[in-house]
Design a protein around this nucleic acid. Structure first.
Lengths: 339, 339
DNA sequence: CTGAAAGCGCTTACAG
DNA sequence: CTGAAAGCGCTTACAG
């Protein structure tokens, strides 16, 4: 049953094993006659070259390691799907690992990738320790950060323009007439969480304003929901708008406001998210949000990774791609204000 | 930079290459002294065994091929995540491919898996042609269907009890006092879609009832939404309940009913889904749904696959796991009816 | 164009 | 316990 080898094919075809190998090597020189014989024999035996053996000798596994986390946030399944398609187009395959925020675990993952001779690594929403980055460098494996960065000293990265994006959200909310704008941030242990908070603060500051409140939502539904409850669990002044660090948390916030507290959106309060995952456009949420251009981010990360595989000396770059505010029904706009 | 080999380590440690290999083989016999020398040298050089080379000789790649589709349906990212964890526990890694319903494409995927010497294949929500199943058999690669089956002649499979589950949904709706119960089915080209429809019809029949309507929603949001619109785009009698073939479509149906048509759920109409994805419990939907026991399905599929890898002669089985109705707020219950 | 041969990095009997 | 040697299935100069 199992493995038919090039030797088996060679024997049946009456040619050398080298000839068989050449037939399966694009661009190698085989005569029409030999090619036919090999093809017939291969077909009869159901032969397919063993890619692992090939990798061993060529040094190219055509495997990319992908670390991904937060799969309950719709942004990542979508990213995974597009990364998969984009890499397949280029003839690469994906070895996936789920990560948590546990650095220890991430270490094990990277070591696994090295063991499997992956040609490159994409780390989606995961930071890499100095040690790990160094480990990959020593093994000559390029790493790209997706939706995270670690500064100019860190590995190359592809993110959206989180700072200016959040700046724009702040502007949008101020122009919408909001006076008490709170922020439930993404995890402040992540660059994306910090960048969005900083951009948001800067945006408000440009109007001489400060956040009504600013609390870490940890990218978690339960935490974001608790924060939302806390913001309204007193008789003092309440926010009239909340900018949430990503859509995934924004949905939790909207659920709490509407279903638990009976607060209307956007009549009583405006909510704005970040990402523009498909769910944001669904009727139940209709969420105004800063879009992350996933398609372009994916194309860029794949392009840059393959570039780096081909040329390991390429300068590490931090690529930021501009987003776009998708205005839907969850936040009052300047127009509605004057109308 | 790149590859440090066992030979490099042997040279530095002053032992044979075999000794190095043995050190990295659990259970092989190495003296403490040799072990120390090897460990030191390996550490200094940053050596890690090349798994691809090992696979070549042992014949065990420790890679499982996973085909997955419909990632926009939250059920699948969750399945992927749990499969990944479960397989990692057992020392396996996942090579993923996204599939569409395009059989031609699936063919290419399976061939890729064979090329990479995967030890087994899990096909989530994808059917395998006779040819493909035969191809895998010839290569000695066990295949398991997840959330689909292809009858007793097809590959082994793990699904939930779709027929009795839908039967129970029908009962639940009838007891809730509903008289005109429609069904928007899953794709009838899939066993799961057909089983759920059949179970549902049988359930109604046990009360002497028939479906008010029964239309294929293709597992697609847009199709399900159109079907929902069509059910109400006339002045004749309308359904008082809709059983939707999975949660993913049910959300689309609810969006159309509430946001486009102004129909209240459950006051005007009851909606029931299938799967119990996390979203179903979110405040915005609060969907009554037949739960698929994902955890047990995943454990079962992994367990059975590894069993089959160890013993290729194992009888193919069709495993069905019982679900449980999660009653939430989207459907009128018998109690509310009498209350 | 073609075949014999070396070698990719490893594991595993085998003899000592 | 240890090393020399064969071999996993392939690619790739090399000589013809």
């Amino acid at each position: 049953m199992n493995s038919v080898t090039s030797n088996d094919v060679a024997r049946l075809a009456g040619v050398s094993q080298s000839a068989v190998s050449r037939f399966f090597t694009p661009g190698a020189s085989v005569s029409t006659k030999t090619a036919e014989k090999v093809q017939d024999a291969a077909k009869r035996l159901g032969y397919r070259p063993n890619v692992l053996a090939r990798s061993l000798i060529t040094g190219n596994s055509r495997i990319i390691g992908l670390v991904v986390a937060y799969l309950e946030n719709q942004f990542y399944p979508e990213a995974l799907e597009r990364l998969s398609h984009e890499l397949k187009k280029k003839g690469y395959h994906i070895l996936v690992f789920m990560a948590s925020n546990d650095l220890k675990e991430t270490e094990g993952i990277v070591e696994n990738f090295i063991d499997y001779q992956v040609e490159g690594i994409i780390a989606a929403s995961v930071a890499l320790s100095q040690n790990l980055a160094e480990l990959c460098r020593r093994h000559g494996i390029p790493v790209l950060l997706f939706n995270r960065h670690q500064g100019s000293e860190g590995p190359p990265s592809v993110t959206s323009e989180n700072i200016s994006g959040s700046h724009a959200v702040a502007e949008f909310l101020v122009r919408g007439g909001h006076k008490r704008i709170a922020h439930i941030s993404g995890w402040l242990g992540s660059s994306t969480g910090r960048d969005r908070e900083n951009g948001f603060r800067a945006g408000l500051a440009s109007f001489g304003m400060k956040p009504f409140a600013c609390i870490d939502g940890m990218y978690r539904r339960d935490v974001a929901a608790d924060v939302a409850r806390a913001l309204f669990a007193h008789s003092g002044p309440r926010p009239d708008a909340i900018f949430v660090g990503n859509d995934h948390m924004a949905f939790a916030v909207m659920d709490v406001l509407r279903c638990e507290l009976g607060i209307r959106i956007p009549e009583d309060i405006s909510v704005v998210g970040y990402d523009d995952v498909p769910l944001a456009a669904w009727g139940a949420y209709d969420l105004t949000t800063m879009r992350q251009p996933l398609n372009r981010m994916v194309e860029t990360v794949v392009h840059d990774l393959l570039h780096r595989i081909a040329d390991p000396e390429a300068d590490p770059v931090q690529i930021r791609i501009e987003g776009e505010l998708k205005i839907r029904g969850s936040a009052r706009t300047a127009k509605e204000r004057t109308a």
